[in-house]
Design a protein around this nucleic acid. Sequence first.
DNA 1: GTCTATAGGAAGATAGAC
DNA 2: GTCTATCTTCCTATAGAC
Lengths: 238, 238
Amino acid sequence: MSSVAKKTVGTGAPETTSTSQATAERIPAAQRRALILEAATGVFAERGYAGSTTDQVAKAAGISQPYVVRMFGTKETLFLEALDRAQGKLLRAFREVIAAYDAGELTEELQHLDAAAGSGRPEQLKQLMAIAYADLIEDRGILMMLMQAFVAGHEPAIGARAREGFLDIYRLVRDEAGLLPETARDFLAQGMLMNTLIGIRLPEIYEQDSTAEELLECTLRSKLPMVLKASKAQRRAG
Amino acid sequence: MSSVAKKTVGTGAPETTSTSQATAERIPAAQRRALILEAATGVFAERGYAGSTTDQVAKAAGISQPYVVRMFGTKETLFLEALDRAQGKLLRAFREVIAAYDAGELTEELQHLDAAAGSGRPEQLKQLMAIAYADLIEDRGILMMLMQAFVAGHEPAIGARAREGFLDIYRLVRDEAGLLPETARDFLAQGMLMNTLIGIRLPEIYEQDSTAEELLECTLRSKLPMVLKASKAQRRAG
DNA sequence: GTCTATAGGAAGATAGAC
DNA sequence: GTCTATCTTCCTATAGAC
């Protein structure tokens, strides 16, 4: 994930005493923007808006701090763009599920759903979208980026976008997936619980705490192994 | 709420040019601690751990910044104590509901529950605890304080307490209220959704957005009027 | 019990070189 | 397209007076 941003160019000779960083490879601005946004998503997801620094983002992206600011103007703008990106990924993931379902491409997946929860389009889509949501946990940044925006409501610009973004998601599951308000609510609630469990890093104590184990199993079901694996990878990288 | 902390002592003569603050009334340390914790809860709830300053807490409590630090040692300790306090209030609120239910003191409230959701002890307690939870929204600080701790998992000390605190709550609803793991999960999920809606300040756009209206109504039900009122009061207080 | 003064250290943003 | 140097502001924590 961040390995791609680590590439640097130079003489090959290791710096001796200087701690200054090597000049990054020259790449097109648009591409650099994308790399910075990816790095920023990880940093903001981890530490929140106020807790992150543009220098941390710069280091994660393998460039200098002023360059990050130069490209996005302010830290706030950077956060907002990373937020848009994360939300876009989420909406796209849901829409892909809906499109695939309506195209009849998910007959295999339908076998594994909980039949007791209902067999209509909304009920099945709800379950399929929940799986798609859990899949996003693998890229820890996406979901936590959104979560961090949700608790930054006091920042006027961020709060406004967070509100709009949340309502966009609600409308998608209600109108495009066809869920009733109450079903949509329950769906979102499960999502917020997953976010929370990830936020408190519950997977990290899975083996040492049987309560954590039960709650995680009950919430993540078939996706638990993947989440546990991602959690361990995270700690190694962290 | 914070008006009690505004009291100052002095000659009564308004300062002319000085911007320095008046010396606060001399009160016992234990009492001062409580006032600071209350103020800190509001500040941290609003802006998160990283986004809050000890000076903001001090101002909210009507005392000087160094005095806040003097009393709690570090900002982190202050946060942790405010977190304990908030969690304690939540646990107490739930336990009071359970005790009152088991003492047969809630016959009136039982009339207003959704009978379709079940009539056993766990099902009824779940609904009653949900109401108690929503009631806590009125004191916006409690729930958002917890929420802010949940997304600050990267701070080792805070993350550890947040994990433990969340599991404490889960165990309470499972063991003391007697909910099945799946029911407890759904209960917590609804709570996290409420937190999120409050976090993004959805009540503030209730009148201007019909989607927000629908989602809030569907999530908060009978508690919506109270939440809307609290939201308006909050905005006035700034 | 409470304050003022301030040390010491980030962090965001700007200027300007290459 | 990218960096180094730096200005300025803000923040936590300490020292010490009252």
